[in-house]
Simulated scan of single mutants.
Amino acid sequence: MDLKSKIRVIEGFPKEGISFKDITTLISDGEAFRQAVNLMKKNLENKNIDYIVGPEARGFVFGSAVAYALNVGFIPVRKPGKLPGETVSFEYSLEYGTDKLEICKNALKSGDRVAIVDDLLATGGTINACAKLIESQGAEVVSMQFLMELTDLNGREKNKEYQVDSILEYNI
């Protein structure tokens, strides 16, 4: 199946000049969603993954499905104030300012093998921050898996120290 044909492209959203890749049409198609999850699962088989980590919000969709398929746990990474209990945070730089991500304290431990799963690799900043947050807990980022990659934005270069796999590639 051609998964690209299942992704709706909306020109000029959220602002003029952007060609938005809408995954809702893919995830609403059971067969297409299953194929995308199975392709990510295949990339992670035999890597002895302990956990899948997914950043909000679309990383929850793909990450939890891949975790289920691999029979491993899923750990969410969120913006500040969204997770219950004690959290650990990581602040990272944006083009104009900073942002912060959090994970539940003690969700990971030293030696855990983790794959990060998300829908899109663009500039790579958020996913790199996820990796640093995971590593701050002593866990190892074994792989980064994406449904789509916007190759012109060089997110792979920002994360060249990690294994990065994407199912679909787009030029912006």
Score class of each variant (00 low, 15 high):
E31K: 14
L108A: 02
L44Y: 12
E11A: 11
A129E: 11
G97L: 03
A67R: 04
G155L: 06
K47T: 08
G138W: 09
Y162E: 11
T87H: 06
E31M: 05
L94A: 04
M1I: 06
L147M: 04
Y162W: 10
F62I: 15
T24Q: 07
A139N: 01
D22W: 14
K160Q: 12
G54R: 05
I103M: 14
E56G: 06
A36F: 08
N128H: 14
A139P: 03
P55Y: 01
V88D: 14
Y162D: 09
E95S: 06
L108H: 01
A32L: 14
L153Q: 08
A129W: 09
A32P: 06
N48H: 14
F13G: 10
D29E: 07
Y92N: 01
D119Q: 09
N154E: 14
S28L: 09
L133I: 04
G97Y: 04
A67Y: 04
L83Y: 11
E91N: 09
V37P: 07
G63L: 08
S64L: 12
A57Q: 04
V88K: 15
L168G: 04
T25G: 09
V114R: 01
E149C: 08
I27E: 03
L39T: 07
T87W: 07
A122R: 04
D112G: 01
T126A: 10
G59E: 05
I116H: 00
N128D: 15
D2W: 05
S89T: 14
V117T: 12
D119V: 04
F13R: 08
I18Y: 08
Q145E: 15
T98P: 00
L70I: 09
L83N: 13
Y170A: 09
I52P: 00
N43A: 09
K15N: 12
N128V: 00
K158W: 02
I49W: 04
N159G: 02
G155S: 10
S89R: 09
V9P: 00
V77P: 03
G81I: 05
L39M: 14
I49A: 01
